[in-house]
């Protein structure tokens, strides 16, 4: 199962839980899994079916190129990190 790190600001929704194991082969399934355990969390991460514009998902440290469709490995670490551009 993938290790999902709950962003600090959403830990109110998880009752302080910082990290959970979650089943899912892609980001969408992982987020649905989160939502099943902690209703309301999906709306904070997703907008119009995509990851919120100022957020990104990092799978094992790499920012997901395919957003909700990005594959998540059996033992992957999943983080919701700030989305970042450059100059």
């Amino acid at each position: 199962m993938a290790k999902v790190y709950i962003p600090t600001m959403l830990q109110t929704l998880t009752g302080g839980v910082k990290q959970i194991e979650c089943q899912g082969r892609n980001v969408r399934q992982i987020i649905d899994g989160l939502e099943a355990q902690y209703p309301g969390i999906k709306a904070r991460l997703v907008e119009d079916g995509e990851i919120r514009s100022n957020l990104a998902v990092a799978i094992d440290g790499d920012v997901a190129r395919m957003g909700m469709l990005e594959r998540v490995g059996e033992t992957s670490e999943v983080h919701f990190v700030p989305a970042i551009g450059g100059g």
């Binding site: 962003p7 600090t8 959403l10 904070r44």
Partner: peptide, 20 residues
């Protein structure tokens, strides 16, 4: 917007984000 949670009144603060 605090990671998707929207404030209850108009503000010049467009977003607040926090990581720990």
């Amino acid at each position: 917007s605090s990671m998707g949670e929207i404030g209850d009144k108009p503000s010049n603060v467009a977003a607040h984000l926090s990581y720990e």
